[in-house]
Write a protein that binds this DNA or RNA. Structure first.
Length: 420
RNA sequence: GGAGGCGUCGCCUAGUGGCCUAUGGCGCCCGCCUGCUAAGCGGGUUGAGGGUGAUCCCCUCUCGCGGGUUCAAAUCCCGCCGCCUCCGCCA
């Protein structure tokens, strides 16, 4: 959630941020009104409650007629306090709901507008060129015995797949390479739970408009996570961190589950958009002051990884309207897919500043007192999209695939993957 | 899954309806004292929210969480969650 103090003191900043996302500023006014109502009911309740408490003490001391009289007064007061408390609770909840409905403030430097309004930051790597007709990853995956989408569909339905043989090896190689890089750059490797309680889901902002995309476990209050960002953000929920220990950098490997409810008919071929995939995700807790610099570092880590895969890709600064609830700024790395002849998202890194920690009650103790903590996340390596990009980019006329030098040690030194 | 036990301020702990504005110890912080160190002495030390928002002051909430009983709940009742022990099952 956004900082209630910013809302109260600089509502115009919030309104502007809404507009840049292409959203109405009505929720801002709703939240302001709710805040006022909330504070009024708090004052009402607390005044009466204080009165009740002091009378209660007199009751304890009194006796006889005096006590009977006091009891009569205090009984009536008790009922009133109960009502005021309920009213206060309701106002508190209404206020919370209103503030929770407001997305993070979009960073002032990013473009306003929707998906197409992104700013191109740079393009890296060489555009792959072929003197034959390139195959797509489905065909290559079949030739290599690496990907089996037919049996994935047979067993689990559409948007599921098996990685087989060298395909499975490829995923493990990517994961190990990502983890090695993460460890070398100061991240603690983590394997978090991929089922979480509503609190974690809510706290990371995935139960709002994005709730359609989330799998819920039948008969239990548990959700399958769409990214390990969720269990990592919630890792320090209800904690006061030691400010001197920041930043805390984690890199998690986990499966990711997505209903893809809103994308029927989109990217149906192959393993580009699936209900399940695995991912190594970077996640950082740091100070608000350091958040932007850390965001740049996360982007550098992502670029370094893409470079090792020798992919052609571009880096974009995502527009305000395409940020999602929690992010104030987001950079995507999009790799060129020869079969689609366009750039497609492989990684995404977001600066959420204190939006998630406020919901999850994560703070830190600094020299000047207890204060907010920022969170940032970034994909280091999801598994299937990089596999697609690798196969398609480094394919050769006979269907074999060249292995980038950095990845070779993780594949037993193989330089080329040969069709079966 | 069955049976039992436990959950109090960073840690340990006292507390079985009003004197709890929650005890004591450890740790930590500030100060004093001691010519180093150690010891000793005094004070402080959960967090959140509100009061037309000064690190001061006042108030409310916070004894795992949520309800209930009561004029009054750490304390009594109900539900839930977590942890521990034993049994069963099991990778």
């Amino acid at each position: 959630m956004i900082d209630p103090r910013v809302l109260r003191e600089e509502p115009d900043r919030v309104r502007t941020a809404q507009t840049r996302r292409g959203l109405s500023s009505a929720p801002v006014d709703d939240a302001l009104a709710a805040d006022e109502a909330r504070r009024r009911t708090i004052a009402d309740y607390e005044t009466r409650r204080a009165e009740q408490k002091s009378l209660g003490k007199e009751v304890a001391r009194a006796s006889g007629e005096e006590k009977a009289e006091l009891l009569a007064r205090t009984r009536a007061l008790s009922a009133e306090v109960k009502e005021l408390e309920a009213a206060q609770g309701a106002a508190e909840q209404a206020w919370r709901d209103a503030v929770l409905a407001i997305p993070n403030l979009a960073h002032p430097d990013i473009p306003a507008g929707g998906e197409e309004q992104f700013a191109l930051l740079e393009t890296r790597g060489e555009m792959p060129e072929f003197d034959f007709t390139p195959r797509d990853h489905v065909e290559l995956g079949a030739m290599l015995g690496a990907i089996d989408v037919e049996r994935g569909a047979k067993v689990s339905g559409s948007r599921f797949y098996y990685l087989t043989g060298v395909g499975a090896e490829l995923e493990l190689a990517l994961v190990m390479m990502a983890m090695d890089q993460a460890r070398a750059t100061g991240f603690t490797p983590m394997i978090p739970p991929s089922l979480v309680k509503p609190r974690a889901m809510e706290g990371t902002g995935f139960l709002g408009q994005a709730a359609d995309d989330v799998y819920r476990i039948e008969g239990q209050d548990l959700y399958l996570v769409g990214t390990s960002e969720v269990p990592l953000a919630a890792y320090h929920s209800d904690e006061i961190l030691d400010g001197a220990q920041l930043p805390l950098r984690y890199a998690a490997f986990s499966p990711c589950f997505r209903k893809e409810a809103g994308s029927h008919g989109k990217d149906t071929r192959g393993i580009f958009r699936t209900h399940w995939f695995d991912k190594v995700e970077m996640f950082v807790f740091t100070t608000l002051d350091e958040a932007e610099a850390e965001h740049e570092r996360l982007l550098e880590h992502e670029k370094a990884f893409m470079d090792k895969l020798e992919l052609h890709y571009r880096v974009i600064d995502v527009a305000a309207g395409d940020l999602g609830l929690s992010a104030s700024r987001k950079y995507d790395c999009e790799a060129w897919l020869p079969s689609q002849e366009r750039f497609r998202e492989l990684t995404s890194t977001s600066n959420c500043n204190d939006f998630q920690t406020r919901r999850l009650d994560t703070r830190a103790r600094y020299a000047e007192g207890i204060g907010p903590v920022a969170t940032l996340n970034g994909t280091l390596c999801s598994t299937n999209r990089p596999i697609i990009a690798l196969l398609e980019t480094h394919q050769q006329a006979d269907g074999s695939v060249r292995v980038p030098a950095a990845l070779q040690p993780y594949l037993g030194g193989r330089e080329v993957l040969e069709p079966r």
